[in-house]
């Protein structure tokens, strides 16, 4: 039975692998956010650390609610996928062993159930991102800022998707239109632009994970969220707080 050993190894960051909990102690390391992060540390120490699965669950929910694409969590995800693979291998090994007892079977069943649950979250997380990548493909292709938040695979997919749809539109319709209307990126007045961009003003429900720096609301007022505060605000006002992991979307 080596699950226990593996778990311990994982907790201590196992050899050269960077510790999975690093993320929490220094979220993002984004320049502007650093000051507040240090200030908020006392709030953080009272709580036990989030497990990688809890982190992913939080990012999954954020991704589902946010209108924009959030920064990719490649390291977290690949560590979890590694863990999933090792758990599945352990299960396979034990299932093949005829000497496993009845009691062991329940253990195996529980481990397997958990594997399926985690796989569901991972899949839903990746699919949510894929949906946004395809929806905003043309916007991604021209925006460096959003490209930084994607993985290499997501970026390539977005650019390819944008190119193929462009080609399709051109061949099926645009080439037979007059020159003035035959482009996808012209911006006629009174008509929304043809490049789909995330609607940053869409309201979201936020839950403050700790004391947050004040934000400015659309009506000019300022709001300082205390830990546990729940609010409905336009996404653009809390976008940086979401990125710095000071709030979660619910």
């Amino acid at each position: 039975m080596d699950w226990d050993d593996e778990f311990d190894q994982l907790r201590h960051g196992g050899g050269s692998r960077p510790s999975m909990f690093d993320d929490d102690e220094n979220p993002m390391g984004v320049g502007a956010g650093m000051g507040e992060v240090r200030m908020a540390e006392p709030y953080f120490e009272e709580e036990r650390e989030e497990t990688p699965l809890e982190q992913l669950t939080r990012h999954w929910m954020n991704e589902r609610h946010a209108p924009d694409i959030l920064p990719a969590r490649e390291e977290l995800l690949s560590n979890l996928l590694d863990h999933l693979r090792r758990q599945s291998e352990a299960v396979q090994l034990l299932r093949g062993d005829p000497s496993t007892s009845e009691e062991e079977h329940i253990r195996i069943m529980l481990v397997q159930t958990e594997i399926e649950r985690v796989k569901f979250i991972v899949r839903s997380y990746v699919r949510t991102r894929l949906f946004k990548v395809e929806k905003f493909a043309r916007h991604i292709a021209i925006s460096d800022d959003i490209q930084k938040r994607l993985t290499a695979a997501e970026r390539d997919h977005a650019i390819r998707h944008a190119r193929i749809t462009d080609q399709h539109f051109y061949l099926s319709v645009l080439q037979s239109l007059p020159e003035a209307q035959s482009h996808l990126d012209d911006t006629p007045i009174f008509v929304p632009p043809m490049v789909t961009e995330p609607d940053m003003s869409r309201p979201v429900f936020v839950h403050a994970l700790r004391q947050c720096p004040p934000i400015t609301l659309p009506d000019g007022a300022s709001l300082e969220m205390k830990k546990g505060h729940i609010s409905l605000v336009p996404y653009s006002t809390v976008a940086t707080l979401v990125e710095n992991e000071q709030v979660e979307l619910i």
Partner: peptide, 13 residues
């Protein structure tokens, strides 16, 4: 109602 050894799951032991 059954006994089980300490087991490491993905979410914890």
């Amino acid at each position: 109602l059954i006994s089980m050894e300490k087991t490491a799951f993905i979410s914890g032991a």
